[in-house]
Amino acid sequence: MTGVLERRAEGSAGPTPPVTMAGALNAALADSLAADDRVVVFGEDVGVLGGVFRVTDGLARRFGENRVFDTPLAESAIVGTAIGMAMNGLVPVVEMQFDAFAYPAFEQVVSHLAKMRNRTRGSVQLPIVIRIPYGGGIGGVEHHSDSSEAYYTATPGLRVVTPGTPADAYRLLRQAISCPDPVVFLEPKRRYWAKETTSLSVDGPGIDRAVIRRSGRDVTLITYGGTVATALDTAEAAGGEGWDVEVVDLRSLAPFDDATVTESVRRTGRAVVVHEAPSFGGYGAEVVARLTEQCFHHLEAPILRVAGFDIPYPPPKLEQHHLPSVDRILDAIARLQWDDRPEVGRA
């Protein structure tokens, strides 16, 4: 599997340069378009402009307007026509410009995209990927920072995935485009410009697997997307306070990788779930419930959540109070009833 970066590297003798998540996503789209004639990429401003985040930069020029094209400004139409195209054998990869601008497409997603396979007893498959830049932390004004994952994870028939690193962005998007199921692909927009020195490969953990990003003995941080880096930073900071923290990057929010996550939590006995979305009825509630059901006798403390407040997403100058921070996660770790086991962690 050859990514854009590796192709660039072929022309130069030097080392592979760091890749951003946006660049890795762009490479995944380019490589999927090159590998499979059925793949088409469309949405608002994805053509000449290359997308407002430049994730589709250069694709229309390279693959032509029959493969990569702009649509009218109508999100329900983008998903609805993608469904019709997939019925006729294409593999549409569509972009919703921002999380909150995907809501007009919600009926098509929930009533048709998620259900068509089941409705037709497997006859009509819809191998569609809906890319949605999601979450906050970029100083966006209202309607540009929603964490909308729970709306989609509550809908059977959809796969919902989100990458936490550039390498995984490439891998997951390639896997999503190859997947026969519809995939809601949530791109943590505040990580678009995060860099990683890596070669891009589709090989590695499958589309339905969580991964342990950092091993630790004392507590498991369970997170995804935009807060994977925050959790890793927290783990580093926690080392100074005497906690050896494990970080699980869920990658696949639906279906949920029970095996990987429960193995970690049974081992550490403590867990904190971290996400940006509001706590109430949020995705973390499902994670806590599942782990409590499956790991109860291994738990040393109730599983805690560090999530956004139960408020509409704040304006840019206040968003730092809303987003899970290293300090807030450390505080949650400190509340995991360590006093019951004074030999572990700080007194």
């Binding site: 609805g80 019925m87 006729n88 294409l90 009533s111 037709t120």
Partner: peptide
């Protein structure tokens, strides 16, 4: 649906119009 080229009877109103447009666009592309 593929046997007689008849999409599932659609209950959510007008949503099937977009499916028809998409299928037709794909036909042109192909």
């Amino acid at each position: 649906p593929y046997r007689h080229r008849v999409a599932p009877q659609c209950t959510p109103l007008a949503t099937n119009a977009l499916h028809a447009v998409g299928l037709a666009c794909a036909a042109v592309l192909k």
